[in-house]
């Protein structure tokens, strides 16, 4: 796998996960249903965590590629 395009793919996945997190959060604000809150807590927040980990992974990979780490 080409290194820059691999990192870009990781970052695109992180963006999609963050977008899903946002949509689940929007449902919490717009609809007063406990199921949306439960969905946000148990699906949305883990997706956000994965997105942040992917972002960190991409940053570390870039720093390693530049031999700064």
């Amino acid at each position: 796998m080409n290194e820059p395009s691999g990192r870009v793919r990781l970052l695109r996945i992180a963006i999609v996960l963050a977008a899903v997190f946002d949509i689940l959060a929007l449902l919490v604000f717009l609809r007063e249903k406990p199921v949306f809150f439960a969905g946000f807590m148990f699906v949305g927040q883990p997706l956000f965590l994965v997105a942040v980990l992917l972002l960190l992974g991409a940053v570390v990979a870039e720093l390693r590629a530049k031999q700064l780490l």
């Binding site: 695109r12 997190f21 946002d22 959060a25 997105a51 942040v52």
Partner: peptide, 30 residues
């Protein structure tokens, strides 16, 4: 985002959009 790599400005957008702003959203939604 470009296939060839990640520019400095893109890094800034990503930091805010994936790392920073969702934290505020998470707090307010919770």
């Amino acid at each position: 985002l470009r296939r060839s790599g990640v520019s400095a400005s893109t890094r800034g957008w990503l930091f805010v959009a994936v790392g920073l702003l969702p934290l505020m959203v998470a707090f307010l939604s919770f």
